[in-house]
Computed example of a mutant assay.
Amino acid sequence: MNTLQPSQNSIVNEIHDTRQRLAELYHNDLLTYSQAAQEHCLALGFNLVDSPRLRHSTEIIKKAIKA
Results as ranks from 00 to 15, higher is better:
A23W: 12
P52T: 03
T58S: 10
T32Q: 14
T32Y: 13
S10M: 10
D29F: 11
Q35T: 00
K66D: 07
R21D: 03
L22R: 00
P52M: 01
A36W: 02
Q38L: 04
I15Y: 01
A64G: 06
Q5F: 05
A43Y: 05
N47M: 01
T32V: 14
K62S: 01
L48C: 02
L30F: 05
N2D: 14
Q35V: 03
R55S: 15
I60H: 02
L22W: 05
V49C: 04
Q8E: 13
N9I: 06
N2H: 10
L44V: 00
L4G: 00
T32E: 14
R21V: 06
R19K: 13
S34T: 15
A37T: 06
L42M: 08
T58M: 11
A37H: 02
S51C: 07
T32P: 04
Q38F: 06
M1W: 12
E14T: 03
L31A: 02
A64I: 00
Q5C: 06
A37V: 10
N2W: 13
N28E: 15
E59T: 10
R19F: 08
S10K: 12
R55T: 15
D17T: 11
R19N: 14
L4V: 05
N9L: 09
N28G: 12
Y26P: 04
K66A: 07
S51G: 06
F46H: 12
I61S: 02
S10T: 13
A37I: 05
S7G: 09
L30M: 04
S34C: 13
T18A: 14
T32C: 13
L42Y: 08
C41A: 15
T58H: 05
H40L: 10
L30T: 02
T18N: 13
S57H: 08
S7A: 06
N9C: 13
T3W: 08
T58K: 09
K62G: 04
T32N: 14
S57I: 08
L54D: 00
A23T: 14
D50G: 07
L48I: 03
I60G: 00
R55Q: 15
A64Q: 04
E59F: 07
A37M: 10
L4R: 13
V49N: 08
I60E: 14
I15S: 01
A43C: 09
V12C: 09
K66T: 07
V12Q: 12
K62F: 02
K62M: 07
E59N: 13
I61M: 08
